[in-house]
Design a protein around this nucleic acid. Sequence first.
RNA 1: GUGGCCGUGGUGUAGUGGUAACACAGGAGGUUGUGGUCCUCCCAUCGCGAGUUCGAUCCUCGUCGGUCACCCCA
Length: 465
Amino acid sequence: MPRKKKTDEDGENIPASSSATIQLQTMSKTPQLVKGMKDILPVDQELWGHIRDTATKIATQYGFGRIDTPIVESTTLFTHSVGKQTDIVEKEMYTFEDQGGDNLTLRPEFTAGIARAYIEHGMLNMPQPIKVFTIGPLFRHEKPQADRYRQHHQFDCEVIGEANPAVDAQLILMAFKLYKTLSLPVILHINSIGCLSCRGTYREVLAEYYRTKRSQICEDCKRRLLKNPLRLLDCKEEQCQPIKAGAPQIIDYLCEECKSHFEKVLEFLDVLEIPYSLNSHLVRGFDYYTRTVFEFYLLQNDEDTPSLALGGGGRYDNLVEVLGGRPTPGCGFGLGIERIVNRLKQVLHDGGEIALPPHAPVDMFLAQLGEQAKRQAMVLFEDLVTEGFAVAEGFVKDSLKAQLELANKLNVRFTLILGQKELLDGTIIIRNMEGGEQEVVDIKKIIPILKKKIESVSEDSYLNL
RNA sequence: GUGGCCGUGGUGUAGUGGUAACACAGGAGGUUGUGGUCCUCCCAUCGCGAGUUCGAUCCUCGUCGGUCACCCCA
């Protein structure tokens, strides 16, 4: 294809044409992918589809129905649920004012939108709990790097309207099962951050403890101490580690109900044989979490490089109420699909194998020669497709050579050749691509003949197994 | 948002202060009736902009992008 000549100044200096020809306005800069965004190309769709299918299957098995909420929500939905002090709301939201003056935000997470839908559609009047899942894009304006994008996708499950610890455990089981089905070894990190009252008590104790060590902690932690003491436990600074290690643990400050809830969750996990690691430093970045919080990490065989979480979630017993609904408990998780995709790609890169469902092969190629034959072939192609054959064509090519080349690349078993001569005789050629032998058959009988051929082939391969 | 490293065609790599080599992929063709081999040809002004210079893809700065670490998360 000839390269278009670039015009100066985006074509602004092109003299007005005397004819009525429309002038192309060539862009001086080729548009680029917006920072932090990623195209999901056809080559990757098989992997993506596999993950989506597996996730959907598991969700369905556990009685979850799909929900799709809009990507755009009111900004206040997130500021009130996720919390104004959180990193996400403070600096990572794609927020804008639309033409009508509404303050909107591209969803940075799923739970708030789903809780909104729960309230708005009066789902409290349906049998509780409501169990829903979704898969879709989320937006966070972070500094992009590997495994971290500004638009990423999550598989998300939520159970709203039930406080029983069995829910927490079953959600964790589902996530665990998905990773397991995809052959990704993961370790669960779990903690309980209690309810509003016991967390409040703990926060005081923790802050008190840190205040005595103030001179020894890093600058960030001094800030955290004032703004959000729980985040102190998240610090990875070297100098803070010993202080962190000696810090009071929230487990010891849980109220009776919260403690019992957490114990029951762990008992379920034991019975279900889900490997977990109690992580008293796990807090998570959303304000709405209560009681159970958890994250999944890839189980590394070498040194446990604290990689990025593959997924996470927790309980949010106050969220619905905060958003103006009746007091309603809830629990859920989100798993990053890109992170799963990247792990699986790594497995493939390292020479491993991933059991992808076999993709349907193309059975045959329909080649034509000559204008008349091409017209007839287009009709025949429709018949073949309607009959359910996986058939490819090369109507944009005129030479038989080019078409056979295509057929070869597609790895088809047969190529049907319809030329002028066959058209006149009312026949068609079936070429076996493996050996190259050809037979001329009556075009009227082509469909039953092909059916027989395809059948016998699939029987053969069945026997070979 | 802060700091380090990086930026040559679709991909993976060469290379030099005087306008770029190789492999693969892709396209066209080797006289519109036959594929997987072979042959020929085509496909990059070296991310973008500015500066230094007689002249820069190679030097400097900026910018954009990628990547890694921090932050935090999926």
